[in-house]
Design a protein around this nucleic acid. Structure first.
Lengths: 319, 319
DNA sequence: TTGAAAGCGCTACCAA
DNA sequence: TTGGTAGCGCTTTCAA
C-alpha cells in the first residue's frame, strides 16, 4: 500500500479511501491510484482489514450432518447469500452433540465469526458480541410449519384408507418433534389409535431408518403405512422393507418429508413434503446480515415458509 | 490482554508468551496469568493474531458441486483434517466454471487463505504466496486409478455376457475422462466395438444421467448394460430406464462409480466402484498442511488410493 | 525468565 | 479533497 501510494504520488490515506469510499476521492486522483494499483499488482491484505475493522466477515454455521441432502440444500442457500454480502461461511458438523452457549460466545468473542447460525436443534440467529444475551435463547428466525405439514401427510394417508400407520422420527430434533405432534393430532382427529410401538425413535439417517423399520417388522402386525419424518429415514425404511420381502407401496406405503434430491429418483419415487430449503438458508443469512450490518436493526419475528404435499408413488390406497 | 497483564501483574509480552509458548514462562508466573485470564474472561482476538502472524489459518476449497454426495464425503475428510490442524475451510462451489490461476493467486495474495485445494478438475494442492508458481500447474496430490477401476468394471460386465455396453460420463471432468479411457481399453481388449452413440457425454448430475439415458433409448437397439461414470449418473439413469418401462437389471444392467451413500439403498442396490473418498479429503489436507507449516517441505509425489468393485444388484448376467 | 518497545497493514480522525 | 498520524491487539526481537 505504501508502494502504491508512492507510485501514485499520494498518501496511503488516499489509497485507503480509494478502496473504501472511492466517491470521496477526486476523479483525477482516482485514476492515478487505479493505475498505480495495476502497476504494482497490489492486493489489499484482508487480514489487516479485518483486524482493523474488528470484523471477521465470517459466519459460523453449525449443522448436525453435512452429508444430509437436506442440509446440503440449506447450505447452498446459506453460502450463496453469505457470499453475496461479502461474508464467508465456516461450518461445524455437530453430529449428536449440541453446542453450548459458552462455546458459541467463545467463537463470537474471539472474533472468529461475526454471527452464528445454528441448525442444530432449531434455526437460530445470533448477532455478534453481545455477551449478555444467550445466543441459544433466540427465537428461530425461519421455519416450516412442521405440525401442519405432518398433519396434512397423515390426513392424506388416512384418506387413502390406512388405519394402521407408524411414525419413524428422532426425538432429539425439535422439528421432528413437531412432526410427531402433527401426526398424533391428525390420527387423534380421525379417531385412530396409535399403539406405542408404532412411534419409533431413531437416529436421522439412512441406517436409522433401516433400524427403525426392522423394529417395526418384528411385531406380529405390520402397519400398512409408515410415515418417516425425513426422506433419509424413508429411503432407509424402503430399503429395509424390500429386504424383508415387502413391496412398496403395494404391501406398505412409505411417506417422507423434505423432498430432497433423491426423493424423485428413488424407486418408487417418494411421496413427501416439499419445503424451500435453499430459500430458508438464504433467508436466515439475509436476516443475520441485516442484524450485523445495521447497528440498531431489530430481529424480525420468525417467519414461516410454505410447504406442499408432493404425491409420487411410494404411497398407495390401502389394499 | 492489557487487562490480563495488569491483573496478573506482568507485562503483555508474558501473557502472549503464556499463550504461545507456555513452556517459556516460569511455573509461578504461569499460574498468575492463568487465574488472571479466568478472572477477566479473556479470549484472544484471533483477528489480531492472524494479522500479526500473517496467516489466515484458512484453506480455500473449490468443488464443482456441494450437493453431490461424493464431494460431501470428501469434504467431511477435508473438514476433519483441517480442524485438527487448526485450519478452517471455506468452500466455493464452482459449478461448470473453472477458476483461473489469477483468481487463485488473488485469494492467496490477499491472505484470504493460506492454501488452496481444487477439486475442480483434478485434485491439486497449492501452497501460499508463491506468485511465481502457477498453482494450477501442480500435479494432483492424490487420486484413484480411474482407468484401472473403470477397466475392472467393464471386464465384469463383459464377463457377464454383455456385448453392447454404453458409457455415460462427462468429458469436462478429467477423472471421468480417465474412466472413459479405462472403459474403451477394456472393450477393445475384449474385441468389442463401441458405436459412437454408446458414449454419451452429459452433465454429472441426476438430471444429466436421465437426459443421457433418454438419448440412449432413442436408438433402435438399446444396450444391455450401461456403465455410468458416477453413482449420481447411475441413479438418474435407472430412474429414466424405469420410466421408459425397462427393468433393471433384467432388461438392462446399470453400473455406477463412487459408492456414495445412496448406492446401497437404491432400488436395486447399485453395483459400483468404491474408493475412500473421505480419506482422500483427509490426505490432501494433511499434505497441504505439511507444506504450509514446514517452510521447506517438498510436495510429495502423488499417491494412488485403492479401489474396489462392489457387486450389488443393478447388474445381472445378460439374458 | 521477564519487560520495553517496534511494528504488522490498514482505517479513520483531524487539520489543512 | 487530501495528508499526517494514532492506534487496532498481538508477536517478537533485544536487553535486562
Amino acid at each position: 500500500m505504501n508502494e502504491v501510494a508512492y507510485v501514485a504520488g499520494v498518501s496511503i490515506a488516499t489509497v485507503s479511501r480509494y478502496i473504501n469510499t472511492p466517491e470521496q476521492v477526486a476523479e483525477e486522483t482516482r485514476l492515478k491510484v487505479e493505475s498505480a494499483i495495476r502497476e504494482t499488482g497490489y492486493t489489499p491484505n484482508t487480514l489487516a482489514q479485518k483486524f482493523r475493522r474488528g470484523r471477521s466477515q465470517q459466519i459460523f454455521v453449525a449443522v448436525p450432518s453435512v452429508g444430509d441432502p437436506y442440509f446440503s440444500a440449506i447450505m447452498r442457500g446459506v453460502r450463496r447469500a453469505a457470499t453475496e454480502r461479502g461474508y464467508t461461511v465456516f461450518i461445524r458438523e455437530t453430529r449428536q452433540e449440541r453446542l453450548t452457549s459458552r462455546q458459541i460466545n467463545a467463537i463470537l468473542n474471539s472474533r472468529q465469526a461475526d454471527g452464528v447460525v445454528l441448525f442444530n436443534n432449531m434455526t437460530f440467529v445470533a448477532d455478534k458480541l453481545d455477551p449478555s444475551a444467550d445466543p441459544l435463547a433466540r427465537p428461530p428466525a425461519i421455519h416450516v410449519d412442521n405440525v401442519a405439514a405432518a398433519g396434512e401427510m397423515t390426513d392424506y394417508l388416512i384418506g387413502l384408507g390406512h388405519r394402521s400407520i407408524a411414525l419413524i422420527f428422532s426425538d432429539r430434533k425439535p422439528s421432528f418433534i413437531d412432526r410427531e405432534r402433527g401426526f398424533r393430532r391428525a390420527m387423534q382427529a380421525a379417531g385412530l389409535d396409535i399403539p406405542a410401538r408404532h412411534i419409533v425413535d431413531t437416529e436421522n439417517s439412512l441406517d436409522g431408518g433401516r433400524a427403525a423399520t426392522r423394529a417395526l417388522l418384528r411385531a406380529v402386525s405390520v402397519p400398512t403405512a409408515i410415515f418417516c419424518a425425513s426422506d433419509e429415514l424413508a429411503l432407509g425404511c424402503m430399503h429395509e422393507l424390500r429386504d424383508a420381502g415387502h413391496r412398496v407401496p403395494e404391501d406398505v406405503s412409505v411417506a417422507g418429508f423434505d423432498d430432497t434430491r433423491y426423493a424423485e429418483v428413488s424407486n418408487p419415487p417418494l411421496t413427501t413434503i416439499r419445503h424451500p430449503a435453499e430459500e430458508m438458508g438464504t433467508h436466515i443469512i439475509e436476516e443475520l446480515c441485516r442484524l450485523l450490518d445495521d447497528e440498531q436493526a431489530e430481529a424480525s419475528g420468525s417467519v414461516t415458509v410454505p410447504h406442499q404435499l408432493v404425491i409420487r408413488h411410494s404411497v398407495a390406497r390401502k389394499s
